[in-house]
């Protein structure tokens, strides 16, 4: 213990570190083999969610508060991005359409690509970042600082109070945010069309929507609900199951964003396949 020889110190430091490192790898391999139990955990989480949703005491006030947090607080971000996407899409497609002599198709084309794909996916990815990470961090820190335990002992079901309200708020608000983004996208597109040309807003709008059919709308709306569900579930699951210690809050928030974004893309792919099968 009392050895002050620097070489000895370095050596003992090195052994300590290598022990720590090997412990970490052991933990890693152990967690890899726990894949199946993780899967069971996720399944249980989803089952619990549905059971608590249909229990008698739905936490309506907390649900409204979450709708406000998720919906209203995201409006600035979604408006700006929506408008810019519409604008950029218009400016980019214009020269190509001119080449083919089809410039009159511009509003319709932009509207369709916004409503079918760009609006939903980009909004969902933004929400995965903003809302998913927010849920992961908030619930994670509540878990780490024992606030979830505190709720439990004051005979409040934290699953019902925290998780069910957040997931339903996400399922309902994210599709609304997506419609909102579509609207701002078309506004942005009109602005883009006006940089080089001169189209009245009314004409632009009627041109845009004369091309959009109900079957462009419906699949997009349906998949929006799934985006909302994916973001809500992942954010809450990661936060609610955060480990002990403050670093796990960061881990929860980060992995919530990564997994939610990935799942949004995958859900989108599946949705497109299904729509394609059903409509062709």
């Amino acid at each position: 213990m009392k050895n002050t020889n620097p070489v000895f110190k370095v050596k003992s430091f090195a052994t300590k570190q290598s022990i720590k490192l090997s412990e970490k790898t052991m933990v890693k391999t152990a967690s890899a083999s726990n894949f199946l139990t993780d899967l069971a955990d996720v399944f249980l989480f989803i089952v619990q969610f549905f059971r608590e949703t249909f229990s008698r005491n739905f936490e309506f006030r907390e649900f409204l508060r979450q709708c406000f947090q998720i919906g209203y607080k995201s409006l600035p971000l979604i408006s700006i991005t929506g408008a810019i996407i519409g604008l950029v899409l218009t400016i980019q497609s214009r020269p190509v359409l001119i080449k083919f002599g089809a410039v009159t198709m511009l509003p319709g084309m932009v509207a369709i690509s916004l409503i079918r794909e760009m609006g939903p996916v980009i909004t969902a990815l933004l929400c995965a970042g903003k809302i998913g990470s927010g849920m992961g961090a908030e619930l994670g820190s509540m878990k780490v600082t024992e606030q979830i335990d505190a709720m439990e002992v004051s005979s409040t079901n934290p699953m019902r109070f925290l998780v069910v309200t957040r997931i339903w708020a996400a399922i309902i608000m994210i599709p609304l945010l997506i419609l909102y983004a579509d609207a701002f996208g078309i506004l942005g597109s009109w602005a883009g069309a006006n940089i080089k040309g001169d189209v009245s807003f009314f004409l632009f709008f009627s041109q845009a929507f004369s091309n959009v059919k109900f079957m462009d709308f419906l699949p997009a709306v349906i998949k929006s609900f799934f985006f909302g569900a994916v973001i809500g579930f992942v954010g809450c699951y990661k936060g609610y199951n955060a480990g002990r210690g403050t670093e796990s809050v960061g881990v929860a928030a980060n992995s919530a964003v990564v997994l939610a974004s990935l799942l949004v893309i995958i859900v989108d792919m599946v949705a497109v396949q299904i729509t394609d099968m059903l409509t062709s």
Binding site: M142, T145, E146, Q147, D149, A150, M151, V153
Partner: peptide, 10 residues
Amino acid sequence: FLFQSGALYD
């Protein structure tokens, strides 16, 4: 139950 960390709702 008084939690060691306080566990006040932030």
